[in-house]
């Protein structure tokens, strides 16, 4: 079995990795998409004043 790793995937915002497994004939047996990144905006916006949130969440993606 052959394994092809595409790391990182590029020209987009964020982090991603693709793992492709090929069978003996070279056909794709299985493929995994992984996101090796988490910042946790969902949690750390808690406790911040509502009027400040637009400025904070604009940093989710700046692209």
């Amino acid at each position: 079995m052959k394994r092809i790793t595409i790391d990182p995937i590029t020209r987009l915002e964020g982090h991603g990795r693709i793992e492709i497994f090929l069978d003996d004939s070279g056909a794709v047996e299985n493929c995994y998409f992984q996101i090796p990144e988490l910042r946790g905006f969902e949690k750390f916006c808690e406790g911040r004043p509502a009027e400040e949130v637009p400025q904070i969440v604009s940093r989710i993606c700046g692209v």
């Binding site: 946790g40 969902e42 949690k43 808690e46 940093r59």
Partner: peptide
């Protein structure tokens, strides 16, 4: 920076929330 605000929170609480 902004991702650093996570240091107000516990690691497990972040994972649980998400």
């Amino acid at each position: 920076g902004i991702p650093g605000l996570a240091n107000f929170k516990r690691r497990d609480d972040i994972l649980d929330r998400v």
